[in-house]
């Protein structure tokens, strides 16, 4: 059963890693945490659910819908919580994103009612069995999507001018503006992208767990943040590492301890790293 738990952990770790990247993007640019990230993920999940229930039973379309909704909500949060609050202390933006988190959650309960919605299964058949461990197509797809997303982002950031601009703004926005870079536009773009990623993962998670509800974002957001801090929130490779490690540790902690300790282990990691190694495993050197 060790192998099965490891496989479960990797599948779940893919979700953590992708949310962690969303946190890294915002942190890299603004040295800020968007605590409404989990709720963007939740809204993405609803968007995907609406698509498969009422438009087309195509998972691809649902993922795109999650991406688009996440983009829009991310863009909006940036405008309200960050751009409009430039010049006031950072804590105001932070509190504002917490406010957003509650607002979006209540909005979703009001719009969709609070009960859990059932998301149909996709690709849930066992692809192959290896040493008593079952691996489903969806689990493979999740890991592949996560890896592809990460590669795409690495290309975007390190092989394109737009990525160069994002990194330049992240490193020194004043100097970047002197190079003619439109700091506001770059910030807005990266923020929207982080939201889009969260919305996209929301659909993936909804499909994996077959459930969508208004409160699904809270724990997911916290775990994604934990993964980011764990691996190193300043960099995308750090976020990825943190995501997969957290997934594996959580699932193995169920095996070796008890499921009651699962969240405890995660939050212990969060607190320990925030206290003693706030730059994560990869440390300060790794940059967006």
């Amino acid at each position: 059963m060790f192998l099965q738990q490891l496989i479960n952990g990797l599948a779940q770790g893919s979700l953590f890693a992708l949310i962690a990247i969303s946190f890294s993007l915002v942190w890299g640019l603004l040295r800020m945490v968007n605590f409404a990230m989990g709720e963007v993920y939740m809204l993405g999940a609803y968007a995907g659910w609406l698509v498969v229930m009422y438009a087309t039973p195509n998972l691809g379309v649902a993922l795109v819908a999650g991406f688009v909704i996440g983009w829009i909500v991310g863009w909006f949060i940036e405008k309200v919580a960050f751009k409009a609050m430039r010049g006031v202390p950072h804590i105001a933006s932070l509190v504002c994103t917490i406010g957003f988190s509650f607002f979006l959650k209540e909005l979703a309960s009001a719009l969709f009612r609070a009960e859990t919605k059932s998301m149909p299964s996709y690709y849930s058949d066992t692809a192959f069995t290896f040493a008593e461990a079952n691996i489903s197509y969806l689990q493979i797809i999740m890991v592949v999507i996560a890896v592809v997303m990460m590669v795409l982002l690495q290309i975007l950031f390190y092989r394109t001018k737009i990525g160069l601009a994002v990194r330049a703004v992240a490193l020194d926005y004043r100097t970047a503006s002197l190079m003619g870079m439109k700091v506001d536009r770059v910030t807005s773009l990266a923020f929207s992208l982080s939201g889009a990623l969260a919305g996209f993962v929301g659909v993936l998670a909804a499909t994996y767990y077959n459930a969508v509800n208004a409160s699904m974002g809270f724990v997911a957001g916290l775990k994604g943040f934990t993964a980011a801090v764990f691996g190193g929130i300043t960099s995308i490779p750090g976020a990825i590492l943190g995501g997969y490690l957290l997934g594996a540790i959580e699932n193995l902690s169920v095996k070796y301890m008890s499921s009651g300790y699962r969240d405890l282990v995660s939050y212990f990691i969060l607190i320990t790293f925030l206290l003693f190694r706030p730059n994560g495993i990869l440390g300060k050197k790794a940059k967006l």
Binding site: L164, R167, A168, D172, R174, T175, A176, K287
Partner: peptide
């Protein structure tokens, strides 16, 4: 000096 410290010289 205000270079982008964590970028390459070329970048």
């Amino acid at each position: 000096i205000r270079l982008f410290a964590f970028m390459s010289v070329l970048e």
